[in-house]
Amino acid sequence: MKVIKAPVSDEDILSLKAGEEVLVEGIVYAARDAAHKRMVEALQRREPLPFAIEGQIIYYVGPCPAPPGKVIGSAGPTTSGRMDSYTPPLLSRGLKVMIGKGERSPEVVEAMKRYKAVYLATIGGAGVYLAHKVKEVETIAYEDLGPEALRKFRVENFPCIVAIDAAGNNIYNR
């Protein structure tokens, strides 16, 4: 099985085909609706993002708080479609991989083709199973957003399926 690890190159992206199972390793940034809104507003004000986004991976998740002795609470994907309108500006700045669940808009797919990016689906509702794949967590910005803060995860063997590849092939359009 292929392993995806940031920083991700155009070459890595072009080798991935829709339907393929992959494992994600290393750093992913956890962000959902509210964090996306702030990131895109920062770009509109020509301010830097809280992390260097070139070649990086964003996971759409708002985890549960960590119980004692664990690094994180349940941490499955949220519905990606709500991030659609924020996504093209991030892809244009070099975001390479998105992880979530559910379909994306035609605008996102077009931007993925233009900027060479992939969209991975993981398993919605498998909160505990996926939390076990997260080994380290650090909150890096927007702490006031609570579960929607921007976090940096280190993951191991994080299971995904290539849902939409950089050629626009889509496993949901069957």
Partner: peptide, 23 residues
């Protein structure tokens, strides 16, 4: 996928963690 969802349910009960982060 169904296999993973069933494993997830076992883990949730054993570790007293929520099945899904969207509680």
């Amino acid at each position: 996928i169904l296999e993973i969802l069933l494993t997830n349910a076992d883990m949730a009960l054993k570790e007293r963690m929520p099945l899904c982060q969207d509680t």
